[in-house]
Amino acid sequence: MALLLVPHDDPRLLALVRAQEREVMARYGVADAGPGLGPSSTCLLATEDDDDAGCVGVAPLAPGVGEVKRMYVAPRHRGRRLAARLLAAVEEEALRRGFHALRLEAGTQQPEAVAVYERAGYQRIPCYGNFADDPSTLCFEKHLTEPQG
């Protein structure tokens, strides 16, 4: 897997974000997947054999706190722990950008994503932001530490 740092409006990234939005909207039966990636977001694009495989972004949420946004692995690339590698990579990038914690929103209809986050050490927190009162939303946080070694 190769990881590329790309701008929030990179066409290859946007194609994956649109696929992620379609999947989320279908799972929840909604017409809007919520806020996406903006100019202040740091975005990673994962490729495998010149195929766009997945993406993730981190956006500033509060001083020293970032929010993981639009984590997605294309269906044809699932089952190879790519999500875990994307999450680890965005955590490293967040540390480089001065974040000491990451938060994220997921949902009750995304058990695969929830499992990835929990395995990576994210802990449930009270929900916040646009989905604070949405019973289908789950929120998580992880305090980041510098890599050992």
Rank of each mutant, 00 (worst) to 15 (best):
L4K: 02
P7S: 03
P7M: 01
H8A: 09
P11N: 01
L13G: 03
L14E: 11
L16E: 01
V17H: 10
V17A: 12
R18Y: 07
A19V: 03
R22E: 09
V24S: 09
V24T: 08
V24Y: 14
M25Q: 15
M25I: 11
A26D: 12
G29D: 02
G29C: 06
G29H: 05
V30W: 00
D32Y: 08
A33E: 00
A33T: 03
P35W: 02
P35H: 06
G38R: 08
P39D: 13
S40T: 13
T47C: 15
T47W: 07
E48V: 14
E48I: 15
D50I: 02
V56H: 09
V58H: 03
A59W: 07
L61P: 02
P63R: 12
G64V: 10
E67D: 10
K69M: 07
Y72Q: 01
A74G: 06
P75A: 07
R76F: 04
R78P: 01
L82S: 07
L87G: 07
E91I: 07
E93V: 15
A94F: 11
F99G: 02
F99C: 10
L102S: 06
T108V: 15
P111G: 10
A113V: 06
A113N: 05
A115D: 10
Y117G: 11
R119P: 02
R119T: 13
Q123D: 14
Y128P: 08
F131V: 02
F131S: 09
F140C: 04
H143Y: 11
Q148D: 10
Q148E: 13
G149E: 10
G149D: 08
